[in-house]
Structures are given as C-alpha cells and as structure tokens.
Design a protein around this nucleic acid. Sequence first.
DNA 1: ATGACTTTCACGGAAAGA
Length: 264
Amino acid sequence: MVCVTWNVNSLRARLARVQEFLSEVKPDFLLLQETKCSPEQFPHEAIEAAGYRALDHSGGRWCGVAVLVPKSSHAELVATGLPGEPNPDEARWIEVRSGNLTVVSLYVPNGREVDSVHFDQKLEFLGAAAERAKQLSVEGDLLIGGDMNVAPRDTDVWDTKALEGSTHVTEPERAALRQLAAAGNLVDAHDSFLGVDDVQFTWWDYRGGSFHRGFGMRIDHFLASSRLADSIASCEIAREFRKGEKPSDHVPLVLHVGNTASVL
DNA sequence: ATGACTTTCACGGAAAGA
C-alpha cells in the first residue's frame, strides 16, 4: 500500500503536478492539504480523468483537505471536520475508511505568531485532534497524515537560531504533536523508517532560493498505528516535485506499507 | 532569514502562508 501526504498549495494551480504524480506513483491514498477551493471549484472531473476519486472537505479561498483514492477503491467518507476544532469553517480535517483502516488528512493551523490568538488556536486544534485520534485508534488501524506545521525536533529545521521565537519549533507545539501521537498510539513513520539522524525536510520557502540552499523544515508527517508501523517499507520525500514547473512549497511524503517496492 | 515567493480574489493590492 502506498500512502502519500502532500500540501499542494492550491489544487487548481497544482493540477498538472498532481496528475503527473498520480500517474507516476499510483498511490492508494493521496492526502492533500491547502486545496484552496470551494466545493464547487473542486476539480473532480480532472481527478476522475486521472483514474481517481476525490473525497474532499473544501472551505474556499484558504485551507481545504482531501483524500484521493483509485476509482477501484471502496474507501468511504467517514467525517469532515474535527469535533472541538476552533474554526470549523476552515476545512482542516477529513476522515476516510477502507475496511479496517481509517485515514485522516489534516492541515494544522500555522499559528502565525507565538502568543497570538492564532497560536492558541493551533494548540487547541492539536488538542482536539488528539481526542479524536484516541477515539479512532480503538476502531482499527489508523493513519494520520498531513501538514502538521510543527518541526518535532531541532534537527528538523535548517537553523534553530534563525527560527528562535517563531512558531513551528516551540515546546508547546512539539508537546501538542507528541500528545497527538500518544493519544492515538501512533508512531512517526519517518522516525520509524529513517531514525532521528537522517532528516528529510518537507517544506522550503519559495523566497530567497531556500530550497537550493537547504533552508527547509520537516513539518509534514505520517503518524501510524503500531500494526501499520511494524510493516513500513519506506517513508521518503518525492524531492523532484519541489523542482520543475510550478512546484508547491511542500514535497509529497511517500509512505510504503507492506511489501510494495519503492517507485522513487 | 524575516521585505527577497506564491496563491486567491479580482483587477490593485491585501491577506495568508511558514
């Protein structure tokens, strides 16, 4: 099974790259964030032309999450929205189920500034996610993937000094992310496959040639329940999708579970 | 690293991202 999470920074602007990705990688689940479209604007026809079906939670100009599955998949929508989230209209959480497996695509709020209301709401969102993960974890296998907007450790950013006092690296955010994993009995697939010393960033700022200078962060994650985590074959970024024509500022994070060979 | 891109909506420039 191939599961991918990708913050595409507008699905409509990224449609060609998403189609390219689908035909190249053929994921069983493609979790998207920042689709940035209203329900009416969601490009269902283009997704279907690529042999996929989209389950979406679309909020308009900002945010928006979705899960793409092959047309042959029997995956069903379980829920859109997260109980207890501070801004339900923002469309940051979607749950899909296929057999015994629940897959969640989430987009954690950025937080903007430490000590802002947005920062508090980021922690609140992560707290609500932990509660929901706890419920879902007792129902079967659980895979939560998305843009979590938290770098778990200092080694997950290019320069800790450059980020001093900013969001994504504070202890409250890191504790909230750890709590999400703990509540759902989930492990970080990156850590499970690569360990903590071989860090692969998932985001680089568009500005200042950050990608080529290596100024990035690891903020997109897959959290997997133990039965899944035990059979992780690989968890790696699709680096070439940060290059070329109109890339997102995030790369896809590609998780192989079971005996599927890597296509990267 | 902090203004240096990119997107949306709407037709200039604000708002947001991380």
